[in-house]
Design a protein around this nucleic acid. Structure first.
Lengths: 339, 339
DNA sequence: CTGAAAGCGCTAACAG
DNA sequence: CTGTTAGCGCTTTCAG
């Protein structure tokens, strides 16, 4: 009843038409008479025929595969994004080939080369930076690429992020309005544009109010390092408020504050994070944080990538999506703060 | 410096050899003289040549692609598993094509059909069940498949899980040893074998000690539903201890207990979960839970799948990996409990 | 060991 | 609209 591997030729024979007729019936933009379509469909059904995507890819040059490079799945923002990206792409007829760019930045280039071997139609690089040499190669190969949640100096590279500078600014304004003056910052990995932009916006807004950063430590976006950073920062002359470069670390910071240092959040220390991952809303953390609008970021990313695929001579696009400060209970709420 | 899309023929011309010689140099099991290899490698390097995986797949019948069907990425166990699976597969020269089987069970079959279109070498289905019709198709098509974290009645289907029955039993024994007698169970989605097995082991051990389940509610593996289940369960005659079918729900249960019902964990209620996801170890939850050894589960899954790919007439294998009860602070610890 | 030749399964002109 | 004819880029006999 079900054959091993049915080819269009076999369907053609059964349907009494040519092999190309079968192809046409299964090719979106092709035309065939109602009668042919009928015959072919019946034969195909009977044989359990489905076109071989790879063969189609070879000749058409479109594989329907999007390469997705991803680094850390432990920061919950990424599984969320990955799920949405994959769904959005699936809806538009594409599929996602995942490449983990685990550790070293060095191997990212290798990973991208492997991706290219699959003749992918496009590449989404989530939170990774690649050498300019490599981006040149992709461009030369005509493979569109868009950066997700990261920008790169390379002006020719499309990228989608939240408005990290504005986000950092919002965090600062909120903390300042709350009356805090001794304010600390726990940074993420310095190589990340998100880290840099958030810090820039944050310190700029502070400075605009005549306030200097009271303390700064680096948590590298890693939980254990964020804990260490917290310990160092609170060892002496602790701040009254901390802005943490992402939620992933912010929760570790809160844990350390509460369980190791015996401090109350927000009575003793206000904490503000960035991302608004699902756990941030859980009552235990109830984290005030700047939201990264994942849905819109994903939608933009997919839009940019697919329009580049369909129209290769589109210039690079950079989109920064503004996200609101989500006010919860981890930081003192200023009197009469406009919601 | 970098060409558009270099073919083996171009490399051959530059190297002054035949196209098939180039192929041999890049084909693992082929042989060529040192001199040829040298010439070809140099020419290839110069041109930036890399073999086209798709073309190779067409003729060799091996795509190097493994289809991975996955349903919920919000339960943290899955991103962890996905990352490990993808890494393990990458190490062995395979790549993962991800298919989100979002909602309805009905669309899983459709998803698997799409996977088949890509001529994948194998399929890993994480936490999803597919119709027996479909599994027959895969078998007929000669595509090996293994279930991850789920078993199916179909005896011909390979599957890797933790020992869920034993795990449920461990949870029960621990709670009983803690002196609890009024014990509740918050179930996961009834269609899942993991849910059934965990409950079976749990209630069996209870019964063996002459204890009947005091209360049972269904949380369907969904956070909001787990909260509702908790509310119902504690509305009147509340239990002293609860076993929750997975950590994802267990944390929602703890939140509800603490923040809505004002109960103390573990003084008022002991809570035990299942999975041992990363957050379970965070001090806020400090959840006692049965560990699913993700690393070993992944290793087994990959082993089974790849050996089937390499030797297609291997029978189905089912592996259940025993995981320890990880004792933390969310449940009363019995006096002198053997660690 | 090496080149020539025959496809893998499919799409895309090309005549009819 | 339809069948015929070329390939897509590569692996794999098959002679030499």
């Amino acid at each position: 009843m079900v054959a091993q591997k049915v080819t269009s030729a076999e369907v053609a024979r059964l349907a009494g038409v040519s092999q190309s007729a079968v192809s046409r019936v299964f090719t979106p933009g092709a035309s065939a008479s109602a009668k042919t379509i009928e015959k072919v469909r019946k034969a195909a059904e009977q044989l359990g025929y489905r076109p071989n995507v790879l063969a189609r890819a070879m000749v058409s040059g479109k594989s329907g595969i999007i390469g997705l490079v991803v680094a850390y799945l432990n920061n919950q923002f990424y599984p969320e994004a990955l799920e949405k990206l994959s769904n959005a792409l699936q809806e538009r007829g594409y599929h996602v080939l995942v490449f983990m760019a685990s550790q070293s930045a060095g191997n990212i280039d290798k990973v991208v080369e492997e991706i290219l071997d699959f003749q992918v139609d496009g590449i989404i690089a989530a939170s990774v930076a690649l050498s300019s040499d490599l981006s040149d190669r992709c461009r030369a190969a005509g493979i569109p690429m868009v950066l997700f949640n990261r920008v790169q100096d390379d002006a020719a590279m499309s990228a989608v992020t939240s408005d990290n500078v504005a986000g950092g600014r919002k965090a600062a304004e909120f903390l300042l309005a709350g009356g805090h003056r001794k304010i600390g910052y726990i940074a993420g990995w310095e190589g990340a544009s998100t880290q840099r932009d958030r810090e820039t916006g944050f310190t700029e807004a502070l400075r605009a109010a005549g306030v200097e950063l009271h303390a700064r430590e680096n948590g590298n976006f890693v939980i254990e390092q964020a804990k260490d950073a917290t310990r160092r920062m609170f060892a002496n002359d602790p701040p009254e408020a901390v802005f943490v470069a992402n939620d992933h670390m912010a929760m570790a910071v809160m844990d350390t504050l509460r369980f190791e240092l015996g401090l109350n959040v927000p009575d003793d220390v206000s904490v503000v994070g960035y991302d608004d991952v699902a756990v941030a809303a859980w009552p235990t953390y109830d984290l005030t944080t700047v939201r990264q609008p994942a849905n819109r970021m994903v939608a933009e990313t997919v839009d940019i990538l697919l329009s580049k695929i369909e129209n290769s001579d589109l210039g690079p696009r950079r989109v920064e999506i503004d996200g609101p400060l989500v006010i919860r209970g981890s930081a003192r709420i200023p009197e009469g703060w406009k919601t």
